[in-house]
């Protein structure tokens, strides 16, 4: 069922077997919008803030954040109003770490953490 590629601005971008972008360097905002549509999300400024946050997280730590650490890191940087799982699940009902990292073009976070 997983797509093997998506078409962004006339270019085919390859996906991994979980449907995440195969090459993080190919990311652009249109990728997030495309995935959002597939996952039936309407992106708001709040969504973009989380997408940017997980991209920065990956830059800094070299890994996709799992849910626990995402909550903690957001609480530290953006305050408890945003750094809590209720807020994040409201934005990304299928799982904030899972969905936000996909939209952000990052690898799927480890299942076991």
């Amino acid at each position: 069922m997983a797509l093997s590629s998506i078409c962004i601005a006339g270019k085919q971008l390859e996906l991994d077997k979980h449907g995440y972008l195969a090459d993080i360097n190919q990311w652009q905002p249109a990728v997030a919008e495309h995935f959002a549509q597939l996952e039936q999300l309407t992106l708001t400024a709040a969504h973009w803030e989380v997408i940017q946050f997980v991209r920065d997280f990956y830059q800094e730590f070299g890994t996709s954040p799992a849910i626990r650490v995402l909550v903690k890191a957001m609480a530290q940087q953006l305050g408890p109003d945003k750094g809590n799982s209720k807020y994040l699940f409201m934005l990304f009902p299928q799982g904030p770490a899972k969905q936000a990292t996909r939209l952000a073009g990052l690898p799927k976070p480890a299942r076991c953490l």
């Binding site: 800094e60 730590f61 070299g62 890994t63 650490v69 903690k72 890191a73 530290q76």
Partner: peptide
């Protein structure tokens, strides 16, 4: 995989 960059997570944990 170069995982040493992730040592920075120690602070967060």
């Amino acid at each position: 995989k170069r995982y040493q960059q992730s040592f920075k997570l120690f602070g967060l944990y």
